[in-house]
Amino acid sequence: MLKLDSVKFNYETQDFEFDFDLAGGRCMAVMGESGSGKSTLLNLIAGFLTPRSGAIYYGNQRIDQLAPHQRPLTILFQEHNLFNHLNVYQNIGLGIRPSLKLNESEKQSIHDALNKVNLAGTENRLPESLSGGQRQRVAIARCLVRSRPILLLDEPFGGLNEELKSDIKVLLNQLKKELNLAMLWVTHDPDDVEGIVDEAMRLEHGKIITLINKCVGETLTAPATNLKDNPRNQPK
C-alpha cells in the first residue's frame, strides 16, 4: 500500500499538502487544473522533488529518502519515455539493468513483455519507426519487466487517438489486476480513466479537495460524473 502521510512542500508562494493512501490492485485518478499540483504530487512520490515535511511509505517501508530509481515504482511519462537512439530491446532492457548486461532469464523477460503488449518481433526497431501508440506500449513493456508494485502515469495518452487509448487502457487494466499494481494516474480528461479507475481525487491550489474512495471490489464506473459537479473540471 502506498501511503502519503501529511506530505508538505512549497514552491514559490504555493503550499502543497497531500495525505492519502492507495492499496495494491487499485487505480486512483488525479485531476485538477494545471498548476493545481498534479505534477508536483507525482514528482514528490517519484523522488524528483523532496518534501519539506511528512513521509511517504510503501507498506511499512519509508521511501521518501530513497533515490528515484530505488523506489518501488515505475513511471509512464507523457512523452520521452523511450531513448530515440536505442532500439526497443535496449529501451526495455535498461529498465532491468542500467548497464544493459543481462542474463538469459532477463533477456527472455524482455521478449515475454513484448508479447504481452502485442509487439513481439519489434525488438530491433528504433522508436522513430513506431507509431505513438506502439511507443507507449513499449514503455508499458518496460514497466512490466521492472515489476515494481507502484505505477505512476502522467497523462500517458498525450497525442493518442481514441482507439489507441482504449487498447492501452485494456492492457493497463489487465496489468493492474494481474500484478496487483497500485496505479496513480494524472489526467485532465475523466474519460481517459473510465472503466479502470477505482478512486479519484481532485486537486486545487496544492490541496486535495475531493477524494472519492469506493469500497474494494466496486469499480468507480463514472468518475466523470462524480467530478464534473465542479464546472472548472470540464476537459479543455
Binding site: 533515490a67 528515484p68 530509481h69 515505475t74 513511471i75 511519462f77 520521452h80 531513448f83
Partner: peptide, 13 residues
C-alpha cells in the same frame, strides 16, 4: 535534458 527524468527514474546514472 529530455532524458534526465527518465534516466534518473530507471537508475541510469
Amino acid at each position: 535534458r529530455r532524458y534526465d527524468q527518465l534516466s534518473v527514474s530507471l537508475g541510469i546514472i
